[in-house]
Amino acid sequence: MDKTLSRDGTSIAYRRRGDGPPVVLVGGALSTAATEEALAALLAPRFTVVTYDRRGRGASGDSRPYTVLREIEDLAAVAGRAGERVSLFGMLSGGALALEAQAAGLPVDLLAVYEPPYTPGPAGLLYKSRCTARLHRMLSIGDRDGAVALYMSRTGVPEETIARMRHFPLWKGLEALAHTLAYDDTLLGNGTVPAERFASVTARTLVVCGGFSPDRTRETTLALAAVVPRARHRTLTGQTRELAPQAIAPVLADFFARDVFLRELI
Rank of each mutant, 00 (worst) to 15 (best):
A223T: 12
T237G: 15
A38D: 14
G94R: 05
G83M: 07
A77P: 10
E84P: 09
H136L: 15
L262C: 08
V157E: 06
L106P: 05
C131Y: 12
R130A: 06
P120H: 00
A40K: 11
G105M: 09
R55K: 07
A147P: 02
M152C: 12
L97K: 02
A44N: 01
T161M: 12
F168K: 13
A123Q: 12
L126H: 14
G18W: 12
V193I: 15
A149P: 08
Y66W: 13
S153M: 03
A257N: 00
D143V: 11
M138H: 12
A34D: 13
D19T: 11
E242A: 15
A244N: 12
A123P: 05
Y151N: 11
L39H: 02
Y151V: 05
R144K: 15
P250N: 08
E73Q: 11
L30R: 03
R130N: 06
T32D: 08
L43S: 08
V207L: 09
D74C: 02
A77C: 09
A44M: 06
S6I: 02
R166Q: 10
S31H: 10
F168H: 15
S6R: 03
I162C: 01
A59P: 11
A123T: 13
L181H: 09
G27L: 07
A82N: 05
G28T: 05
E196D: 12
A247M: 01
T221P: 05
R70G: 09
L150D: 05
T48E: 11
G90L: 06
P250E: 04
E73S: 05
R241S: 07
R70D: 14
G27W: 04
G80A: 08
R232V: 07
A226G: 03
S87Q: 08
A33Y: 00
G90Y: 07
R134K: 14
T192W: 02
A149V: 02
L236Q: 07
H233T: 03
R81D: 06
S87T: 11
D215R: 15
L170R: 06
A257M: 01
G238S: 08
E242G: 13
V227C: 15
D53A: 08
A253L: 04
G238N: 06
H233E: 11
V86H: 01
P214V: 00
G27D: 02
G90D: 07
R232T: 13
A225M: 01
S129H: 14
T221H: 09
D109W: 00
T220K: 02
F198H: 03
D143S: 09
Y183M: 03
L150T: 04
R137D: 13
T35H: 14
S6P: 07
A76H: 04
L188I: 09
A112P: 06
E100L: 11
D62P: 01
M91S: 12
T217E: 12
T51Q: 13
A77F: 03
V148D: 04
L243C: 03
D215P: 07
P117V: 02
E242D: 12
T180R: 09
T161A: 13
L30M: 13
A13V: 06
A253E: 11
